[in-house]
């Protein structure tokens, strides 16, 4: 294909390179290029947040960014939350607090939750609702998503203080 460029992006800690057309959206590169289908496409119009990924730690909508824009940068997708076979606290929170039903919004919600907890390990209900306010969930009514994020915050805190003791 004419007009292709090589990009190299660290995805979940691993460097991945490929040839892409500049018009390739980041979400398609992740799903079709790398087979990382945990990042979902909901609305495809920048409105639902199902495609949220972390770009150098900051939540962005991968349906509204070209893959070339992420060249040289680091991405985290839902597949990168688990480390060494152990669930991330946010994943455990969603499991314990029944934070999902169909699961379509869940990857985006978990990444937002993980990013929030980096800044604010002990968020209030209001803080969580604010952080996820742009991401849509058609199933849960949000209540258990909020609880799941708070559960994860408490777990991370208790592990930290446990490690210090």
């Amino acid at each position: 294909m004419a007009n292709e460029t090589t990009i190299s992006i660290t995805v979940n800690g691993r460097e991945r390179s490929s040839e892409v057309e500049p018009r390739m959206l980041l979400v398609h590169w992740l799903r079709e290029g790398l087979g990382l289908t945990g990042t979902h496409i909901g609305c495809d119009t920048t409105s639902c947040g199902a495609c949220t990924v972390l770009l150098d730690g900051t939540p962005v909508k991968s349906c509204t960014m070209f893959a070339v824009q992420a060249d040289g940068r680091a991405l985290t997708t839902v597949e990168g939350l688990q480390q060494n076979g152990k669930l991330h606290a946010i994943q455990e929170g969603f499991k314990e607090e029944h934070g999902l039903q169909c699961g379509f919004c869940t990857p985006g919600m978990m990444l937002l939750g993980a990013a929030l907890l980096e800044d604010n390990p002990n968020p209030s209900e209001k803080d969580v609702r604010w952080a996820i306010s742009g991401n849509l969930c058609r199933c849960t009514g949000y209540q258990n998503i909020v609880k799941a994020v708070q559960y994860a915050g408490q777990k991370i805190e208790s592990e930290r203080s446990g490690a210090q003791a």
Binding site: G49, T58, V60, T64, M65
Partner: peptide, 9 residues
């Protein structure tokens, strides 16, 4: 303005 994720960019 817009939503928190859109505001990041």
């Amino acid at each position: 303005i817009s939503d928190p994720v859109v505001r990041n960019l």
